[in-house]
Design a protein around this nucleic acid. Structure first.
Length: 1062
RNA sequence: GGGCCCGUAGCUCAGCCUGGUAGAGCGCCCGGCUGAUAACCGGGAGGUCGGGGGUUCGAAUCCCCCCGGGCCCA
C-alpha cells in the first residue's frame, strides 16, 4: 500500500454528511467489509453470544424505539468485535400471532373467524400471512442496514420456518415429559363478537364504560335478618356466585341498619354508609375476618338459576386475602370462579367447581335458568337487578364509570370466561426460576427487582390459541380411546405413522393422522396453535437449530448478552427464562441490559394514531445516520427518550465542529509534510510543551474511562466522554493553544511535537468512536489516517480498540490544567468587565490563589494561562495584595430604610454618606450600627446598606472560588502599538480571504492613513509582515494595478490597506 | 389498586449509589474572532432541585407521605 505522508484530502471535500454516509455505505458493500469483520471475529476463540430479541414483523416502517434498540445492539457488538471477541450476531424476526392474522383479515375483508374457513380457506390465509411477514422483514432489514447495523442480515432466524417450529415442538415434549403439560379449564378474556379467547397481551385496550354499582345483601344461613354485604359492578356474574371472599386480618363489623344486621369491613363502613346516604346506623360488634371463615349464606336468586342447585353447596365465606381490598367495596367479595381470575385461583385451591354461565357469543347459558339467552352485560344486568330489587336484596345501587377492557379489534367489551385450554405448569418451577434469575446480571439493578416481583406472582401458562398463524400445538389425541401423545420432532411424526407435510403450519399439519399406540385407532391433532410468546422465548436454542443440530448451541450457550426495552422484563426476558428452565433447568442468558422507551417530545408514546409518529424514511432524509446514532447513544440508556428534531439539529452542529477539527489537522499536517510514521509522540517527547503532555494524558484517561463505561454497558457515559473530549479538550482548548506553534513557518521541533500529539489524540478518538458513529469514522479513516500510514487494514472497523497506557496518565497535570482553565475563565471575565478585547495584549495579570493547588497550577501552567488570556506576564501574589488595594464604600439601600424609618430616611441617607467608613466598619464587625437621629434611635442592619469593595481604577478584579484575579489595564506605548498592529493584521487577513488567496500565497502590502497607526506598524513591521505573509510593506497609496484596496476604520482612526499577490 | 422508573435553569439532561457552597449543552442577551469560517470563541442573565415531613451540624443526594408522567400488571 502506498502512502503519501498526510495528504490533505479532507479540506478539499465539501462537508456533506449525507453524501459521506452514502459513499461509506457503497464502500462497505463494494469491499464486503462486514464479511471481513466477521472473518476476523470468527478467528477469535473468545466467544460472545449475543441473542437478538426478535422485533415483531407486523409493519414495514420501524419505530424510533426499534432503531434505538438495534443501534444499542450494534454499538455493543462492534465494541466487542473491536476488543477481539468472536461475536455471534444473528438477527431475528418474530413472525407469528394474532396481530398479523388480524391485519390479513382486514386486508382480505374478513369479518369473523369463520370467514377464514368459509371465504378464503386456511391455506390461502396462511400464505397471505407468510407473504405479509416476508415483505415486512425485507423492509425492516433494509432499514437496519441503512442505519449502519452490522449483523448477519443474510441469515436471520425467522420463527415461522419448519426448523424453528420443530425446535418448538421439542420444548412442548420436554414439558410433557417433565409432567408440566396439562389440560385445564381456566378463566381468560374472551371476545364475544370475535368468538375467541384473547391472550393477556391482547387485552391492552380499555374504555371508560358505565356499569351498575350495586351493594347486594346475602342472607346468613340460619340467622334472622342478618346479611353479608357485597359490592359488584357485574350483576351478570351473580348467577354464577359460588362463595364469598374475606380477609382474615382485616377488621369487620356487624352493624344495625333499619332493623337489619349487615356484615362488612370496618374500614369501609363510613364510606359505604355515606354512599348509601344512611346516617342512622349502629355498630354492634367488631371482630377479625378470620371469625367469618366457613360462615354459610343463601343466594337471593338461588331458585331462578339451575346451576345454583349444585353451587349452593359451596355458599360460604372463604379466607382469601389476595382477593380482598380494604379500600374498595365492602371487604366481602362476591366470587364467581368462572368469571374472575382471583376467584378462579381461590376456587381451585379449595377444590370448588368452576362454572361459567356465559357462552362463546356472550349470552347466558341454559344453566343460568331464568336468564338463559340474555346478553351478558346490558340484558342480563337489567333482569337480575329487577329480581334483586323485588326480593329486597339490594342495600344500595347507583352507577359507576370505570375502565373496562374491550377487544382491541372490534371494541366490544370483553367477558372473563372459563374455557378448556392447554397449560404448562410454570408455577411448579417458581423456585428454580427465582434461583436462576438471581444468577443473572441486570443492568440497571432495579430491573432485577422488577423481574423478581413478577416471578413472585407467577401463574400457569395457557399456551394454546384457537387460531391459525402460529406454531401448531404438537398434541395428537386418539379418536377412539382419547389416548394423548405429544410429538417432539418430525421424525417422531413418521415413527407414529404420519407423513411430514412440506409446511408444518395449519392446515397441512391438521391433516396428519397418527396411529394410536394404545388401541391402534386414528389420532388427530389438537387444533390449537401456540401463544406467540412461546416463539421468541425459545430463540436462544431454536435460532441455533437445536436440537436437530447440537454443536452450535452447546458451544455458544448461555447467551452472554441480551438487551431490550423495559416492557420486555415481563415479556421476552421472562419467556426466555421460562423456556430455559423448562428445557434445560437453567437461565439461557447471563447478562441483561434494559433500555428505555422512545417517546415524543412531550413524553407521550409515539403512535401513528396520535400523529406524532416519525417515519424512518423521513428521519434518514432529514438527519445523517451518525447524528441519529450519536444522539440516541447519549441518552441515559435505561431512561425513556424524548424524541426531538431540535436536539438532533444541535447534535448535527456538534458534528461540524468534529469535522472541522479533523480538517484543521489534515490541512496543516499536509502543508508541513508531517509523517506520522516518522514523527511520533515517542520521539518528540523532548520537544513537547506541557499542553502536549496534558493532551496525551487526557487521551489515555479517555481510553480508560471509555472502557470502564462500555464494559459496564453505560454506552451513554462513553458517548458523553467522547463528545466532551473532541469538542472541549481537543477543539476548543488544545487546538486553540497550539495555533501559534502550528502557524510557525519553519519546521520546528515544537511544531512536530504538537502534530504528533494531535495526530495521536485524533486517531485514538476516531477508533473509540467507531462503534457509535461507524460512517463518519470510516470516512475520516479512509481519507486521512489510512492514506498517511502503511500496513493499515481496509476498514477502521477491522482495527482493535486502543488500551489505556497508564504510564502516560498524569492526573496531577490534568487537575492542574482544569484549575488553570477555570482561572482563565475568571480572567476573561475580568477582561470583559474592563472592556479589554482579547486581541489586545495586557501587561500583567495578578492571581492570588485561595488554595495551594491553585498556586501550583498557576505556577506550572503560567505560559498556558498567559497565552489563553493574552497577557505578557502572570504574577502570583498572596491574598494580602488585594486586601491592601481594596477600599470599601457604602451605599444606602433606600427602599429598605424607607420601609423601616419613613420620614427619617433623608437624614439617614445623609448620615450614611457622611460616616460611611465608620458605619461599614461597625456592620462588618458587629452586624449593626446604632445612632440617634432627630431624637429617635435608629439601628442600621446589613439589609439597610450595601457594602462594596472597590479596587483602583487601573485594575479589573474578579473573584471565583479558586482565586482572586486582577487584570492590569495600564498599557505602554509599545503595547498600544502592538494592539494596533494586531488590528491591522486582522484586516489584512480578512482581505486575503476575500481575495481568495491560498494560505501559502505571499503578498505585498500598502498602508496609508492615520499617523499613530503608521508609527505603530513601523515599530512592529517584521511581526506584521510575518503574520500576513508579506514580502514587503510599502507606506503610501498604491499606484500599481492589480492591487486590492480597501478603507478601514480602527476605533476613530481611518486607514487604507492594499494587497497584491506576489 | 400493586411493582419498578422518572420529575434539577426556557428546553434536553448530568449530579443522587458513597450527604459538604447547584452543573453542562442548547436557547436568550452582550461582546469578540475572521489562517477550522454556511463556522468558531468569550462573558452574562436564568434554579422554591415536583410538594410536604423526617434523619443529620449539614439533604438535589438517605427515609416516609403526597402530586405529576412512563412501563408492566391488576
Amino acid at each position: 500500500m502506498s502512502k503519501v505522508k498526510v495528504a490533505d484530502r479532507l479540506s478539499q471535500i465539501q462537508y456533506n454528511q449525507f453524501k459521506i454516509e452514502e459513499e461509506v455505505k457503497e464502500f462497505w458493500a463494494r469491499n464486503r467489509v462486514y464479511n471481513l469483520i466477521r472473518d476476523k471475529s470468527n478467528a477469535s476463540n473468545r466467544k460472545f453470544y449475543f441473542l437478538d430479541g426478535p422485533p415483531y414483523a407486523s409493519a414495514k416502517s420501524i419505530h424510533i424505539g426499534t432503531i434505538w434498540n438495534k443501534v444499542i445492539k450494534d454499538i455493543v457488538l462492534r465494541y466487542h468485535r473491536m476488543r477481539g471477541f468472536n461475536v455471534w450476531d444473528k438477527p431475528g424476526y418474530d413472525t407469528h400471532g394474532l396481530p398479523i392474522e388480524v391485519k390479513i383479515e382486514q386486508s382480505l375483508g374478513l369479518k369473523v373467524k369463520k370467514d377464514i374457513y368459509e371465504k378464503v380457506g386456511v391455506e390461502k390465509f396462511i400464505e397471505a400471512c407468510r407473504g405479509f411477514v416476508n415483505e415486512n422483514m425485507e423492509a425492516m432489514s433494509k432499514q437496519f442496514i441503512e442505519i449502519g447495523v452490522f449483523m448477519d442480515w443474510e441469515n436471520p432466524y425467522v420463527t415461522y420456518t419448519n426448523d424453528y417450529i420443530e425446535s418448538g415442538w421439542w420444548l412442548i415434549k420436554k414439558a410433557y415429559e417433565k409432567g408440566l403439560l396439562y389440560k385445564g379449564y381456566k378463566v381468560l378474556h374472551w371476545c364475544p363478537r370475535c368468538e375467541t379467547v384473547l391472550a393477556d397481551y391482547e387485552v391492552s385496550e380499555y374504555r371508560e364504560l358505565e356499569d351498575p354499582s350495586v351493594y347486594v345483601k346475602f342472607p346468613v344461613r340460619g340467622r334472622h335478618r342478618e346479611y353479608l354485604l357485597v359490592w359488584t359492578t357485574t350483576p351478570w356474574t351473580l348467577p354464577a356466585n359460588t362463595f364469598i371472599m374475606a380477609h382474615p386480618d382485616l377488621e369487620y363489623v356487624r352493624v344495625m341498619v333499619n332493623d337489619e344486621i349487615l356484615i362488612l369491613a370496618k374500614s369501609r363502613l363510613e364510606d359505604v354508609m355515606r354512599e348509601a346516604n344512611i346516617r342512622d346506623y349502629k355498630v354492634i360488634d367488631v371482630f377479625r375476618g378470620s371469625i367469618l371463615e366457613g360462615l354459610e349464606y343463601e343466594h337471593p336468586l338461588e331458585d331462578y338459576v339451575d346451576a345454583q342447585r349444585e353451587l349452593s353447596n359451596y355458599h360460604r365465606v372463604i379466607m382469601a386475602p389476595e382477593g380482598v381490598s380494604a379500600y374498595e367495596g365492602t371487604g366481602l367479595v362476591h366470587s364467581a370462579p368462572g368469571h374472575g381470575t382471583v376467584d378462579y385461583d381461590v376456587a381451585v385451591k379449595h377444590g370448588i367447581p368452576v362454572v361459567s354461565l356465559v357462552d362463546e357469543v356472550g349470552r347466558m347459558t341454559r344453566e343460568s335458568g331464568k336468564y338463559h339467552g340474555l346478553y351478558f352485560r346490558d340484558e342480563a344486568n337489567k333482569a337480575i337487578l329487577e329480581d334483586l330489587r323485588a326480593r329486597n336484596a339490594i342495600f344500595h345501587e347507583s352507577t359507576i364509570v370505570h375502565r373496562y377492557p374491550v377487544c382491541w379489534r372490534c371494541k366490544t367489551p370483553l367477558a372473563l370466561r372459563a374455557t378448556t385450554q392447554w397449560f404448562i405448569s410454570v408455577s411448579k418451577l417458581k423456585e428454580l426460576l427465582i434461583r436462576e434469575a438471581n444468577k443473572i446480571e441486570w443492568v440497571p439493578e432495579w430491573a432485577k427487582t422488577r423481574f423478581m416481583n413478577m416471578l413472585e406472582e407467577i401463574r400457569d401458562w395457557a399456551i394454546g390459541r384457537q387460531r391459525f398463524w402460529g406454531i401448531p400445538l404438537p398434541i395428537w389425541v386418539c379418536k377412539s380411546c382419547s389416548y394423548t401423545h405429544v410429538v417432539g420432532s418430525t421424525r417422531e411424526l413418521v415413527e407414529m405413522g404420519g407423513e411430514v407435510p412440506e409446511d408444518l403450519h395449519r392446515p397441512w399439519i391438521d391433516r396428519v393422522k397418527l396411529k394410536c399406540p394404545n388401541c391402534g385407532g386414528v389420532m388427530e391433532r389438537v387444533l390449537d396453535v401456540l401463544d406467540v410468546w412461546f416463539d421468541s422465548g425459545i430463540s436462544f436454542y431454536a435460532s441455533l437449530g437445536y436440537p436437530m443440530r447440537r454443536d452450535l448451541y452447546e458451544n455458544l450457550e448461555p447467551a452472554d448478552f441480551i438487551v431490550e426495552g423495559h416492557d420486555q422484563i415481563r415479556g421476552w426476558f421472562f419467556s426466555l427464562l421460562r423456556s430455559g428452565i423448562i428445557g434445560f433447568n437453567k437461565s439461557p442468558y447471563r447478562r441483561v441490559l434494559v433500555h428505555g422507551f422512545a417517546l415524543d417530545e412531550f413524553g407521550r408514546e409515539m403512535h401513528k394514531s396520535l400523529g406524532n409518529y416519525v417515519e424512518f424514511d423521513e428521519l434518514i432524509a432529514k438527519v445523517p445516520r451518525d447524528v441519529v446514532r450519536f444522539w440516541l447513544a447519549t441518552n441515559t440508556i435505561w431512561e425513556d427518550l424524548k424524541f426531538s428534531w431540535r436536539a438532533l439539529e444541535y447534535t448535527a452542529r456538534d458534528f461540524t465542529v468534529i469535522w472541522n477539527t479533523f480538517v484543521f489537522a489534515s490541512t496543516y499536517m499536509s502543508l508541513d509534510g508531517f509523517d506520522p510514521e516518522v514523527t511520533t509522540i515517542e520521539n518528540t517527547i523532548d520537544s513537547m510543551e506541557i499542553e502536549d503532555k496534558w493532551l496525551i494524558s487526557r487521551t489515555n484517561s479517555l481510553i480508560r474511562d471509555y472502557h470502564e463505561a462500555m464494559s459496564n454497558l453505560k454506552i451513554h457515559d462513553a458517548t458523553r466522554l467522547l463528545k466532551a473530549f473532541i469538542l472541549d479538550d481537543v477543539s476548543r482548548f488544545y487546538i486553540r493553544l497550539i495555533r501559534r506553534r502550528v502557524w510557525e513557518e519553519r519546521d520546528t521541533p515544537s511544531k512536530r511535537a504538537a502534530y504528533a500529539t494531535l495526530y495521536y489524540a485524533l486517531k485514538t478518538w476516531l477508533i473509540l468512536a467507531a462503534p457509535i458513529i461507524p460512517f463518519l469514522t470510516e470516512y475520516i479513516y479512509q481519507n486521512f489516517f489510512k492514506i498517511s500510514e502503511s500496513n493499515t487494514p481496509a476498514s477502521i472497523h477491522l482495527l482493535d480498540l486502543p488500551e489505556s497506557n497508564t504510564k502516560l496518565i498524569d492526573l496531577t497535570l490534568e487537575e492542574h490544567m482544569s484549575i488553570a482553565r477555570s482561572i482563565v475563565e475568571t480572567i476573561l471575565s475580568a477582561r470583559a468587565a474592563a472592556g479589554l478585547k482579547l486581541r489586545r495584549p495586557v501587561r500583567r495579570v495578578i492571581i492570588a490563589a485561595k488554595k495551594d493547588k491553585v498556586g501550583e497550577a498557576v505556577k506550572k501552567l503560567s505560559e498556558v494561562v498567559a497565552e489563553m488570556v493574552n497577557s505578557k506576564t502572570i504574577e502570583l501574589q498572596g491574598l494580602e495584595f488585594f486586601e491592601k488595594l481594596r477600599v470599601y464604600t457604602i451605599k444606602p439601600n433606600i427602599g429598605e430604610i424607607g420601609r423601616d424609618y419613613k420620614k427619617l430616611t433623608p437624614e439617614i441617607v445623609r448620615l450614611v454618606e457622611e460616616r460611611g467608613v465608620e458605619i461599614a466598619d461597625n456592620i462588618i464587625k458587629k452586624g449593626y450600627y446604632e445612632a440617634i437621629i432627630s431624637g429617635e434611635s435608629v439601628k442600621l442592619e446589613p439589609r439597610h446598606i450595601e457594602i462594596i469593595a472597590e479596587y483602583p481604577e487601573w485594575l479589573s478584579v474578579k473573584e471565583s472560588d479558586l482565586a482572586l484575579v486582577a487584570v492590569d489595564k495600564q498599557l505602554t506605548r509599545e503595547e498600544e502599538a502592538e494592539g494596533y498592529s494586531k488590528e491591522v493584521i486582522r484586516r489584512i487577513q480578512f482581505m486575503r480571504k476575500e481575495a481568495k488567496l491560498m494560505i501559502e500565497d505571499r503578498i505585498a502590502v500598502w498602508l496609508d492613513g492615520d499617523k499613530e497607526i503608521m508609527d505603530a506598524i513601523k515599530m512592529y513591521e517584521d511581526y506584521v509582515a510575518g503574520e500576513v505573509r508579506a514580502t514587503k510593506i510599502i507606506y503610501g497609496t498604491p499606484t500599481e494595478s492589480g492591487v486590492y484596496v480597501k478603507e478601514w476604520d480602527i476605533e476613530d482612526k481611518s486607514i487604507r490597506i492594499g494587497i497584491r499577490r506576489e
